[in-house]
Simulated scan of single mutants.
Amino acid sequence: MPSGIMQSCSRCRMQKRKCDRRLPICTLCERLKRPCSYPTFDEPPAVVPDPRELSCPTIRDTLHKQISAFVGNSQQVADWTAEYFRTIHLWLPVLSQTNFYTRLQSVQPETDSMDFSALILAMNLVCSKSVNAALTTPTRALYLLVKTLVSTLEADGVNSLEMVQARLLVTVFELGHGLYPAAYISAGANVRAAVDLGVNAGSDEQLVETFGSREIVEEAQKVWSGIIIADRSVRLRCSSVSGFRST
């Protein structure tokens, strides 16, 4: 076995199947005509919350540790966000670059603001690429972390513009990688979270009262447009899949 390659390919490890570790594609994946990839030890470690540590008294501390392991230092955050604004933002402008960097300068995302941390992690997630049409182990771990963080904050009563933006980016990730029914469920939850926040309020006066400034109102309106586009895209996709019909 070549140096640095794990004992099994990513798909066999995930499904707990016996893998013969043959390169470039293991025998089982070849027979099933499935993508096959081998994560190496050079990749960052998978960071998935331990369910035993997610009791009510410790859940936030546990998630802070998981976030810190992924977020790393300020230079890593800068690299992530620069990649996002250089790529995804060009065709999905649902974040204000000015507002984002203004807030980034005033917080420590790995410790101070859970909803802002969720947004930063979602920005990194949506920029992730598959390998041989399959998600890498670190990407799957990051996906699970962001989903856990969003669910935890939701259960704790947190709903903010950053949370809605993070939700939308997760849905775009799910849509882009064909993760169903997760994308379908997420798209519906996005609409309800945005409505609860007042993103779709009728008049400009109501929006300014809700968000405090016209700059944030403009950002919120772009988020609402992105949510509607994502929801319609997911519905169109689901309606074309045999045995899965949206209503």
Rank of each mutant, 00 (worst) to 15 (best):
H89D: 15
A122T: 02
T136L: 06
S55K: 02
C29D: 05
C29R: 03
E154T: 15
A69K: 01
S151E: 13
N124K: 14
P93N: 02
S96M: 11
V126Q: 03
L135C: 13
D42Q: 14
V48P: 13
V48H: 00
T102R: 12
P39T: 13
S96Y: 00
D42M: 10
A78E: 11
A78Q: 09
T58R: 10
Q108T: 15
L153V: 06
E43P: 09
L32V: 11
T102D: 08
T81N: 07
D42K: 15
C29H: 07
V47Q: 00
E162P: 08
S160V: 09
N99H: 14
C29T: 06
T136N: 05
V146L: 09
N99F: 14
L153H: 01
V77F: 07
A82N: 12
T152G: 01
L135D: 15
P49E: 04
E154L: 06
S74M: 04
T58K: 11
F100G: 04
P109L: 14
C29G: 10
F70M: 05
R31Y: 06
A155R: 10
T40V: 02
L90T: 11
I88N: 01
S130V: 01
P45W: 13
T152D: 02
P35M: 00
W80V: 12
A78I: 00
V48Y: 03
Y38H: 10
H64D: 11
D61M: 10
P51K: 04
L161V: 10
T87V: 06
D61L: 13
A122Q: 11
L142N: 07
D61R: 13
S55I: 13
R52P: 00
E30P: 05
A118N: 03
R140L: 01
K65F: 15
D42R: 15
E162H: 13
R167W: 09
C56E: 14
Y143T: 05
S130I: 00
S113W: 07
R86T: 07
H89K: 06
A82V: 15
R60P: 07
T81V: 12
L145A: 03
T102L: 10
R34W: 12
V77K: 06
S37T: 15
A122M: 07
K147M: 14
A166F: 01
P35R: 08
L135T: 10
F116S: 05
W91D: 02
K147N: 15
E162Q: 11
T139A: 00
T58V: 09
V146G: 11
L32K: 09
T136F: 04
S68W: 10
C56D: 14
